[in-house]
């Protein structure tokens, strides 16, 4: 992938305040209004002093209950809404310093976005919808048609390129949304609850599809969801939002095993441990006894059967490159699960 699509996002002390006079209240409290001060004056901090970084090819899943500020956060990161304060960098470029023209250029080349309710243009066919971002750039019809067809094939909608959105199911519409957001080959991909409007079976199918795509494309992704299950399946890291603040950010395992706050602990209490914990957390020194080795980031759910069925086996653990690390610590593992 070339330079223009490298895709690193950083934000520092990002604020988005809604209310009668966001800028005023922010300055009045020297850039750090307390929750009480905001509430008293009738303001809401939808994004409250958030700093985070997404590295190239990483998928950050932003989680939180309704109203916690997830959508506002991505809209600040993509500058769809103007933030109250803070700084967002995209590949080292200061996003808030761009004028309107530069911003449009940025949207044209660097970012793709997928929306909860698909947001397809009802008067355009699938093909035209997918080609729309290319059309905006003034690319010739032949070229954009070829590129759009390629995208449609990628999301598995070949044969329906001349349908209108109203003739497609929800899952298919979202495939179109995904294809459209990928048409310009952006380095950064924002997805705001892309699968929430779909029913559970389709959602599952779309997640698999999405993982397959990400495997191929390796975009930097900010993915929003309020479904923990979805977060676990997809995330490299998870950020948990509560009232506009990041309560904790880390790998699924860190969040479940070491919740930073009570809120996170309650939030994650129902999560089945076996799905989050990986073998790597339960390694002790020692040699295996000749059984097949497992990789260190295998979730323990998938080897639980082996452990339970052969209680005496010493199962070796290896790194991604095959280097031997040790063997599974059965007791610690069972303690973590049931203790």
């Amino acid at each position: 992938m070339d330079g223009k699509t490298s895709g690193v996002i950083r934000c520092e002390s990002l604020w988005k305040i809604y209310g009668p006079d966001p800028g005023g209240i922010f300055r009045k409290h020297d850039g750090a209004p307390s929750d009480e001060a905001l509430k008293e004056s009738g303001h809401i901090a939808a994004v409250n002093n958030i700093s985070l970084e997404i590295s190239r090819g990483e998928m950050l899943v932003v989680m939180g209950l309704s109203g916690s500020g997830k959508s506002t956060l991505v809209r600040c990161l993509s500058r769809l809404v103007e933030s109250t304060a803070g700084r967002v960098e995209m590949d080292g470029q200061d996003l808030f310093a761009l004028d309107e023209k530069e911003l449009i250029e940025l949207w044209r080349h660097k970012m793709g976005m997928v929306f909860q309710h698909f947001a397809l243009l009802p008067h355009k066919t699938v093909l035209e919808n997918v080609a729309f971002p290319l059309q905006m750039q003034g690319i010739t019809p032949d070229v954009r048609r070829a590129k759009a067809l390629e995208m449609i094939e990628l999301v598995g909608l070949s044969g329906r390129e001349n349908y209108f959105p109203r003739e497609l199911s929800g899952g298919q519409q979202q495939r179109v949304g995904i294809a459209r957001s990928l048409a310009v080959d952006p380095g950064i991909w924002f997805l705001d609850e892309p699968f929430s409007a779909l029913d559970p079976l389709i959602r599952r199918e779309m997640q698999d599809e999405f993982l397959r795509l990400q495997e191929m494309l390796k975009k930097s992704i900010v993915f929003i969801t309020h479904d923990f299950d979805e977060a676990l399946r997809l995330a490299d890291r998870i950020a948990i939002l509560y009232h506009g603040k990041v309560e904790q950010i880390g790998t699924p395992e860190e969040i479940v095993m070491n919740p930073a706050t009570d809120y996170v602990a309650r939030f994650t209490s129902e999560v089945p441990r076996a799905r989050v914990l990986t073998v790597g957390s339960f390694v002790v020194a020692g040699e295996g006894d000749g059984v097949e080795p497992v990789a260190k980031d295998t979730p323990i759910a998938s080897i639980l059967r082996r452990i339970v069925l052969s209680p005496d086996a010493r199962i070796p653990v290896v790194e991604d490159n095959g280097r031997h690390l040790g063997v599974i610590d059965r007791n610690a593992l069972l303690d973590a699960l049931f203790g």
């Binding site: 769809l80 949207w107 793709g112 243009l121 905006m136 310009v184 924002f190």
Partner: peptide
């Protein structure tokens, strides 16, 4: 829908 307008903006209109 606000999302449609946002889709337009992020498509680089």
């Amino acid at each position: 829908q606000p999302e449609i307008i946002e889709a337009g903006r992020t498509s680089g209109c």
